[in-house]
Design a protein around this nucleic acid. Structure first.
Lengths: 216, 216
DNA sequence: AACACCCTCCCCCACACGGGGGATTTCCCG
DNA sequence: CGGGAAATCCCCCGTGTGGGGGAGGGTGTT
């Protein structure tokens, strides 16, 4: 059984390149091309492909919105969002829109076809820097070195700071005196090299530190 | 060259199962097991494995925190976080903690060893519902309603607040008087329903507001 | 013209915050 | 046992911050 693929990209060159890669595989076939997000929906409705390769940046209706529309269909195809830049903010949006995969245009052909097979099998995947970008949120932010040097208590305090609590509130939450919190906060600021609590909270967010363990 | 693996899981049965799967591969070898997040760090420090299979739920120090500690090491191993449930909230936290991969315990052995090879090669990967959980969990952080009501200037100010600048610094950056900034900040706080600048910055981060387009 | 809104700047004031010290107990580790 | 780190609490003090007002100039809408 061959996998039916639709390619959506506004650049003819890219479409051609993708088509060649896909058609080179015996079990894959391109059943349609769209140059715009507006074209892709009726095309999918008609062709019922297994997988759609979707460019992010397209005129009128962009790839994200198009993905949203496609996944809202009765029998939605799997959508793999393809983009040029690895520090792309669209990763997150793409996934929320219902995309099954996200990868870069510079991905090797072998990986691309691999991705098509994987998502069509029901799995999802992301590639390298996509995951990193997502995990790290949006900024180019690796964990702040100082965070590892926080003591348990200091980490508690930072966590609560990152939830917007005042010193007094934190004191209440941790059932200790207000002066104690001031101490801890001071230490946290020093270790994180932050001037004030706002900078500390920013560091916490940039490091993906904020409250790993509270759901309510 | 064989890949060195450390297994961290509090359940003996799971550890045994994982070990069997891993050891079955000629190019993989288990160089250590840990029953707790607290054990895994010194073990990794000593064994210097290429990959760590990390359970999420463990006594004292959980898998996320342990991952955080491991990726903070000088030569961090790749960490693959393993969990039981697919609707797990930990996906996102795991990735932010620096994990290279995330997969389910019910993953087929072949996929597991495949994952080990992939991450050790420098790639990242996620499996099935992990991605979905990721997208959803991230969706929990929808934009604060108030943010849309900010004026252009107020948005500028919030952006700079979210970079840790003081009012005086913001004033310098925007080339206006300090009193002006106080005004804007006050308006921002009101619109975001924030008590202080820290809460405003948190709202900004939660909304994915922070400067999509500035790196330096 | 009148109005609304935004941006700009100003004054007064209370207080939470952060920096500078120091003191105590507990507990772990060598 | 002694040293050290962590956690707790205390005092003093300067100031950045935020709340309460108000006022002027600009722009666009009605």
């Amino acid at each position: 059984m061959t996998l039916r693929v639709v390619i959506a990209d506004d650049e003819d060159l890219i479409r051609a390149g993708l088509r060649i890669i896909v058609e080179a595989e015996p079990d894959l076939t391109v059943v349609g091309e769209a140059a715009d997000g507006a074209e892709v929906v009726p095309m999918v409705r008609q062709q019922r492909p297994d997988v759609v390769l979707m460019d992010v940046r397209m005129p009128s209706v962009d790839g994200i919105q198009a993905t949203r529309l496609l996944t809202a269909l009765a029998e939605p195809p799997k959508v793999i969002v393809v983009t040029t830049f690895d520090n792309d903010d669209y990763v997150y949006d793409a996934l929320r829109a219902g995309a099954s995969g996200f990868l870069l245009k510079r991905t090797r052909p072998a990986d691309l076809v691999q991705a098509i097979r994987v998502v069509s099998a029901g799995d999802s995947l992301l590639f390298p820097s996509a995951v990193r970008a997502l995990a790290v949120s949006r900024a180019g932010a690796r964990p702040h070195p100082g965070i590892a040097r926080l003591t348990a208590r200091e980490a508690d305090v930072l966590r609560l700071m990152a939830r917007g609590l005042s010193n007094a509130e934190i004191a209440g939450e941790l059932v200790v005196g207000g002066e104690t919190i001031k101490s801890h906060v001071g230490n946290v600021l020093a270790k994180l090299n932050a001037r004030d609590r706002t900078q500390a909270v920013i560091a916490a967010y940039e490091s993906g530190f904020h409250s790993p363990a509270d759901h309510r």
